[in-house]
């Protein structure tokens, strides 16, 4: 029997796909972001390889003492084990340092690995892989290289992942103070170009001054450095005021792990 072939017109094809797109567009992001997270979760291995390769290329490392093919599998095993041990030591040292800081007394930290960061494009975010997602909630501050890099925007406990909106993300707004301007508090808004803006500042600020995230009850107990002033220019509308451009205090693109600050953890 001849196989019956159904033919769909181009117009119908276009309409169906367009409708699908519109359904995705107007479905709440909490539902559709699960597709995005599932993709990252399924392909985390090739994604992390890609990220590692990129990091290696950027740091221009030379492998002068790379092991030859004649190395036995035991040597490889030992090397991997030593590296794992070293990594655990570094994590322990990091946690020890955080737990033994006076201002962090009673605070818990969740160490998390970074899955490729998108920092240079229009939006700035990180996806982090965290074994301990208990107690992790939206708006928790995230530390990277001893400075605030952003806040948790979504938590996915089923797949042990969370999303971090970086301070440079256009959706990010953080209360800050600027070194040298005592008593004055401002709102720092992300501008998407791996930088953030503080607008309508009353005084001129020197380039390189530190910018601190202000304490936020339940989320941050002490001011912490968030960035440095990279540009200070007059506001176009009100020339008596100044607009500051702030860059993160660390290179977010190079981060491999971060720590989430969990104030008042559940025991």
């Amino acid at each position: 029997m001849a196989r019956k072939q159904t033919k769909v017109s181009r117009r119908m094809l276009f309409t169906w796909f367009m409708l699908t797109g519109l359904i995705f567009l107007f479905t709440p992001q909490t539902l559709t972001s699960k597709f995005q997270l599932a993709f990252v979760h399924v392909f985390r291995w090739p994604l992390s390889i890609g990220a590692d390769l990129a990091l290696t290329a950027q740091t221009r490392q030379t492998l002068t003492d790379a092991p030859g093919r004649s190395e036995t599998q035991y040597l490889n095993y030992i090397a991997s084990l030593e590296e794992t041990l070293d990594q655990q030591r570094r994590k322990f040292a990091k946690l020890y340092k955080l737990y033994n800081t006076y201002v962090w007394e009673g605070t818990d930290f969740a160490l998390a690995d970074v899955i490729p960061a998108t920092v240079g494009g229009a939006r700035n975010e990180l996806t982090i892989s965290c074994r301990k997602t208990n107690g992790l909630v939206k708006d928790h501050f995230v530390l990277g290289d001893e400075c605030i890099i952003g806040t948790i925007s979504d938590v996915f406990p089923q797949i042990s992942k969370a999303r971090v909106a970086l301070v440079t993300d256009p959706a990010s707004k953080i209360r800050v103070k600027i070194a040298g301007l005592a008593g004055l508090k401002y709102i720092m808004k992300g501008s998407g170009n791996n930088s953030a803006k503080v607008e309508m500042v009353k005084n001129e600020v020197k380039v390189g001054q530190n910018v601190f995230a202000l304490k936020k009850p339940g989320f941050l107990d002490a001011p912490m450095i968030v960035g440095k002033v990279s540009e200070c220019k007059r506001n176009q509308k009100y020339p008596a005021l100044w607009d500051l451009t702030v860059v993160p205090a660390c290179d977010v693109g190079q981060l491999e792990d971060v720590a989430v600050i969990i104030m008042n953890p559940q025991k």
């Binding site: 276009f14 567009l25 479905t27 972001s33 597709f35 995005q36």
Partner: peptide, 18 residues
């Protein structure tokens, strides 16, 4: 759209398709 996070899904599907 799948790799476009934190943007919502849909905008790229529509614009690419169109």
């Amino acid at each position: 759209d799948l790799v476009g996070s934190p943007m919502p899904m849909g905008p790229q599907m529509i614009s690419f398709g169109l």
